[in-house]
Design a protein around this nucleic acid. Sequence first.
DNA 1: AGTTTATTGTGAATATTTTCACAAAAATTT
DNA 2: AAATTTTTGTGAAAATATTCACAATAAACT
Lengths: 216, 216
Amino acid sequence: MISKLSRNSIVRLAQYKNILNKLSSLGLVKVFSDNLADAAGVNSAQVRKDFSQFSIKGNRRGGYDVNELRQQLAQILGKDEVTKVIVVGIGNIGKALVHYKGFEKENIRIVAGFDSSLKSEGKIGNVPIYPIDRIEDFILRNKIRIAVISVPDTSAQEVLNILVKKGIKGILNFAPIRLTTPKSCVIHNVNLGLELETVIFYVNLLKDKKVAIKRI
Amino acid sequence: MISKLSRNSIVRLAQYKNILNKLSSLGLVKVFSDNLADAAGVNSAQVRKDFSQFSIKGNRRGGYDVNELRQQLAQILGKDEVTKVIVVGIGNIGKALVHYKGFEKENIRIVAGFDSSLKSEGKIGNVPIYPIDRIEDFILRNKIRIAVISVPDTSAQEVLNILVKKGIKGILNFAPIRLTTPKSCVIHNVNLGLELETVIFYVNLLKDKKVAIKRI
DNA sequence: AGTTTATTGTGAATATTTTCACAAAAATTT
DNA sequence: AAATTTTTGTGAAAATATTCACAATAAACT
Ligand SMILES: NC(=O)c1ccc[n+]([C@@H]2O[C@H](COP(=O)([O-])OP(=O)(O)OC[C@H]3O[C@@H](n4cnc5c(N)ncnc54)[C@H](O)[C@@H]3O)[C@@H](O)[C@H]2O)c1
Ligand SMILES: NC(=O)c1ccc[n+]([C@@H]2O[C@H](COP(=O)([O-])OP(=O)(O)OC[C@H]3O[C@@H](n4cnc5c(N)ncnc54)[C@H](O)[C@@H]3O)[C@@H](O)[C@H]2O)c1
C-alpha cells in the first residue's frame, strides 16, 4: 500500500504534526498547505505530496481541518497511544533526556533509565534508574520496543546487542560510532559533534567567501 | 572554485575525518575509499566523489595516506585551529554539552555558558557560566562566531536576535521551532523529539508489516 | 622489463527528491 | 446561477544525489 518512504518525508510529517499542535493550541481550525510549508520551511507542493503519500485529503479551496489532520498524522506516526522508551547510559545526555518534560506531550514516555555505574536503584524525578543488570528483565516485563543509547562509543555495540536480543525494535543512538543491527531493528544516529562541525564549516566558508551557499 | 556543496556532503566529510582520527590512533597509515565507505555506511564511489569536490587526491592502487587525508579534511572543515563556542541556556541540554569532554579532540572548545536564571557567575568544570546580560560584551571581547541555543522555544528567537546582532555567524539550535536568521548567519536545527518520533514511526511500520522499509 | 592486479577519478547512467504548473473542485462574489 | 477566486492533488519537468563502470595508472609480482 505504502511504497516509497524516505526518512525525510517522515521527519517532515512529524514536523507538520508538531506545527499543527501549536496551531491548534492557538485556536486555529483550518490550515493551508502554504501555511504548513512556511512553518516547516518547505515548498507547499512538498506538503501536499507528503500528504498524498498517505492518502491524506484536504478540501479544495478549504485547506485542511487542523484537528482532523493532527489526528491523521498522529495515527500514521503511531502517536495515538503512549510510547514507552528506556534510556541506557545516564550520563550527560541520558540525564538531559530523562529530565526533559517535553516528550510527554508527544505521547512519548521515558519509563526507566539504566546505567552500569549504579549498584542500586535511583530516581530522576519519577523516572526510576536501575543498574544495568536489571535491563533484560525490565524490557521483557514491560514490553519495551524503543531505546536510547547514550553510553560511550566503546560500550555502544555491546549495549545494542543486549537490547536487540531482548526484543528492542528501534534505537536512537548518540554514540558517535556506526553500530551494526539486524534487519529487525531500526537504528537512527544523532551525532552532536558532527552537527556542530557542520555549522563551523559553513561559517568558515562564509568568512573566506569561497562560495555563496544556499540556505540550510 | 567550489560549486555545489550539499549539507550531506559536508556531514560525510566530517564523518570521514572522525573515522580517520580513529584509524590513525590505531596506527593505520593507509586507507582505501572502500574502507571509509564501510565505516561511514556509504558507497565507495561516493567517498571518492566527495573528495574530488575538494580536489583531494589519492594514489591509484595506493589509496590515501591517513594522516595527510586527515589534515586535508581538517583544513577544509576549518578544524585546523580551535573553534570557540558559547552555549546559551544552561538547562538539561546546555549542561550536557558543557560537561562533554569529547569536543576538545575535534578542536572545538566551549568557552562559556549563559543563562537568564543566574544572578552571578558560576562554573561547570572550568567553563564559566554567566548571567545572560554578560553575553554581548563576551562575544565582542572574545570574537565568538559560533553559538548553541538551548533555551526554551519561547525564548529562542529573542536569543538569536541578540546573538546575530553581536556578530555570531553560526548557530546550532535545539529549540523545536523554526527561527529566522539573516543571510549572514548559518543556522542548523537539532530536534531530538523529531528524531525519536521518527524511530517510533519506523518501529510501528515494521510491526504492522505495512511495508518493507529500506535500511536507514 | 613485462605482466598482472588493485584502486583511483570521473563521465555517464540511474535513482530520488523537489518543484512546477495546471486541471479539478469547492467557496465566494456578482 | 454564472463568473470569479482560491486551493488542492498530481502528473510532468527539473534539480540533486547516488551508483555504475571503466580507462588511467601505479604497485606488486614473475
Ligand atoms: N554530552 C554531549 O554533549 C555529547 C556530545 C556528542 C556526543 N556525545 C556522545 O553521547 C554518548 C553519551 O555521552 P555523555 O556525555 O552522556 O557520556 P557520559 O560519559 O556522561 O555518560 C555515559 C554513561 O554511560 C554509562 N555506561 C557506560 N557503559 C555502560 C554500559 N555498558 N551499560 C550501561 N551504562 C553504561 C556510564 O556509567 C555513564 O553514566 C557518548 O557516546 C558521547 O560520545 C555526547
Ligand atoms: N532536554 C532534552 O532532552 C530536550 C529534548 C528535545 C528538545 N529539547 C529542547 O532543547 C531546548 C533546551 O531544553 P532543556 O531541556 O535544556 O531546557 P531547560 O528548561 O532545562 O533549560 C533551558 C534553560 O534556558 C534558560 N533560559 C531561558 N530563557 C533564557 C534566555 N532568554 N536567555 C538565556 N537563558 C535562558 C533557563 O534558565 C534554563 O536554564 C528546549 O527548547 C527544548 O524544547 C530538549
